[in-house]
Design a protein around this nucleic acid. Structure first.
Lengths: 229, 229
DNA sequence: GTAATGCTTCGATCACGCTCGAACTATGAG
DNA sequence: CTCATAGTTCGAGCGTGATCGAAGCATTAC
């Protein structure tokens, strides 16, 4: 026993309901203040402060001070990745305790996964990029093919800027609702930003849902050659 | 708030040190009895029994009764996948609390990840399969190319039997020590079994380490065209 | 049958950690 | 400077859940 890393430490960090709610809220990719997170978790500001200290100390959150506000965000993409995986397990293994309200449908269709697009539309986009060989596999993971580069430039993505970053361009992320892969990494992030910039989609203010306009969804399907559902 | 699946439920299950030790022990892929798991976790049989009931009830473990023994195993590959991811996060985000003993080197070189090979040799094998185009990407994930099929047949893998199973042939799994991908899925499992069958490697009785014989390691490197370290 | 092993259930203990009220610090507004 | 907002720290209360002793089943051995 006692071999390998200490998974109990971070699992117990995620295991508290208040903290789990905070982390789930931060999966929206937005940095939130302590007050906002307190409300999100349904606890007072004092307890929230204690929880946030533990989460940052545990390496799960990153803190950015800005004036008299303290903005908290997930420390790294890895954290979001683990949380999304846990959601998948919670759905499959656990008896799913989620009120399937009106929001739920929207979440399953398109939502934010930290900083990129997930849900049905996210997995469809990934599938399309794969089948059309816009993405290809090499020893270091996934990368854009020539046709993929052309497509991204046509969509107005600044690939040079993305390549300059040290983080990976393309990463895979498992979708908890679809149980299939969607595109993460700096390209995944840039694409979502582009969709918003182009007016195709907008984020829901209070949830992880992403709302596509009718024209935006049409343009999205055309861009990635996705058939009508 | 309260949107999405209940990650706190399973995270808190994993979050208890005793249970985390049990789950880590089960990452060896072996089904263990309640007594063995109690010893692994460092608790008495009574408390272990309580923990095991919670884990099975929570959908993380699967129970197989056999005579007067009760064998516990991870319920599904997904569970192992999440645990491996959590280990990666524990290493990167947490201050790593692991005694870096002699076992540690062996674990990093080659170890069991539930039912397939992980560690340095696992990631090298995956990299080799990728660069030599034995594996290729399609819309459904990874699959063997023609040359890959030939290689597996040469190695004595019964692909027809594997394809008959409903579970995926190839899956990716993130390595906590290498922080890179290695091969999971039924093929990953079959390959490890083949290595043992061929006398190339054997599992450590008390840990997740996999010991390759000198001849076995040489044969392994030749089979996958891996250069000397 | 009796004995032994493997494991569960019950009950009591006990401690950890979540929670919030109150007081305190810090930054900004007027 | 005064007031307001944002957040932390301290301390006490309190419940949940981990733990183990003892007793109870269940299965195998003899």
């Amino acid at each position: 026993m006692r071999e390998g890393p200490d998974i109990a430490r971070i699992a117990s960090l995620i295991g508290d309901p208040a903290r789990a709610n905070m982390l789930t809220a931060l999966m929206s990719g937005k940095a939130l203040t302590a007050s906002e997170l307190a409300q999100e978790a349904g606890v007072t500001l004092q307890t929230a402060s204690s929880h946030l200290a533990k989460l940052t100390d545990g390496g799960l959150l990153r803190l950015r001070k800005q004036g008299r506000h303290r903005y908290f965000a997930l420390a790294h993409d890895d954290v979001a990745h683990v949380l999304e995986n846990l959601m998948g397990l919670a759905v499959s293994a656990g008896h799913l305790r989620m009120r399937t309200g009106p929001k739920d449908g929207a979440l399953r269709k398109a939502r934010i996964c930290y900083n990129h697009l997930a849900g049905d539309m996210g997995t469809r986009m990934f599938d399309s990029l794969m089948t059309q060989r816009h993405l290809e596999l090499n020893e270091k993971g996934i990368d854009l093919s020539e046709s993929g580069v052309a497509l991204m430039q046509h969509l107005g993505i600044d690939l040079a800027a993305l390549r300059a970053k040290r983080s990976a361009l393309c990463r895979e992320c498992l979708d908890w609702s679809e149980r299939r892969t969607h595109l993460a990494g700096s390209l995944g992030r840039a694409l979502l930003e582009r969709f918003e910039q182009a007016g195709w989609a907008s984020r829901d203010a209070n949830s992880r849902a992403v709302h596509f306009t009718r024209r935006g969804e049409k343009a999205f399907r055309e861009a990635f050659s996705i058939a009508e559902p």
